[in-house]
Design a protein around this nucleic acid. Structure first.
Length: 295
DNA sequence: TATCAGGGCGATC
DNA sequence: GATCGCCCTGAT
């Protein structure tokens, strides 16, 4: 309810942007807690609930300050430099041309972890349903304009419920076998712990995350890339796996391990950006049929 | 009614 | 270290 008061100010700010495309950034599948209302995106992150839209070269927003927006959308990242370090081949070139201005969002680490635990063997609408349910049950109401939403809970708000009550509750929200992952992880970590991983090397931070139940390579890489600034992390999910095999191995039989090691040395230190462009490209342009026909 | 999805895990070879 | 069956649930 404090959030309601805090967010009730309706003044709009704006910031000039270049090499940034809001729609691509929002719709590429990295972020789940948003809703589109007209040309505005209403976005949840931590205790923020803000709205944002893009004009020609300006972002217009309210509910968050300029510094937050800059940081959240990685507007400080020099896109030209980043893209110049991605190896240009037929596929990356097309992906970048199509989705130029897509940036990696800096999510709240705990919410990002929660999101990608929910994403296991799932799909975007269902992930969003799970997260919204989680927010409604455990979180707090927030409001901006006439739009109402709920913030996601901190880990201790889930942990304090106790396993006996929490796990069935989570299953009731549709989390299924992910319920025990979410509950156990919420017992083991908090935001401060996740923040502390920034101080580690990429392999160390990844190893720490993978100690958590439900966190394998893919989920760990997502959390590292989308919330902890490890822009070299290259999450390999089903889509990217199919894309990499098709684009770079021409259907030759290779193990998951070989795919993983290929992407980590081919795409370089901004591999995460390459991943996101290729990911969005393979989903929206090529689609499922392309790969099914291929294999 | 069976199968599969934007994985992880434990068992097995 | 590679492969497989299972895990919940909703969609086809």
């Amino acid at each position: 309810m404090q959030q309601t008061a805090r967010n009730s100010g309706n003044q709009t700010s704006s910031v000039k942007v270049r090499d940034f495309h809001l729609i691509h950034t929002m719709e590429c599948g990295q972020l789940f807690r948003y809703r589109r209302v007209g040309d505005w995106y209403y976005v949840h992150s931590g205790d923020k609930f803000f709205k944002i839209r893009q004009g020609e070269s300006r972002l217009e927003f309210s509910g968050a300050d300029k510094d937050f927006i800059r940081h959240f959308f990685s507007l400080d990242v020099p896109m030209k430099d980043v893209l110049s370090e991605i190896p240009l081949d037929r596929h990356t070139r097309r992906a970048i041309r199509l989705y130029y201005g897509l940036r990696i969002i800096r999510q709240d680490p705990w919410e990002c972890l929660l999101s990608y635990l929910c994403s296991i063997a799932s799909n975007i609408p269902k992930i969003q349903r799970c997260l919204d349910g989680l927010a409604r049950v455990f979180g707090e109401e927030v409001r901006l304009d006439e739009v109402k939403g709920y913030s996601l809970p901190e880990s201790n708000q889930i942990a304090s419920v106790g396993a006996r009550r929490a796990v069935p509750l989570l299953k009731g929200l549709g989390l299924g076998f992910r319920s025990k992952y979410v509950y156990e992880v919420s017992q083991r970590v908090d935001s401060a712990y996740l923040e502390s991983l920034r101080g580690l090397s990429y392999p160390e931070a990844k190893e720490k995350l993978m100690e958590l139940p439900g966190v394998g390579e893919k989920v760990a890489d997502c959390v590292l890339l989308f919330s902890l600034d490890f822009v070299g992390a290259f999450p390999v999910d089903r889509w990217i796996d199919r894309a990499i095999r098709t684009f770079y191995f021409k259907g030759k039989k290779v193990s998951p391990r070989e795919v993983q090691s290929f992407v980590s040395d081919y795409f370089g230190r901004y591999g995460g950006y390459a991943q996101q462009y290729l990911f969005h490209y393979s989903r929206t342009v090529l689609g499922k049929d392309f790969f099914q026909g291929k294999q």
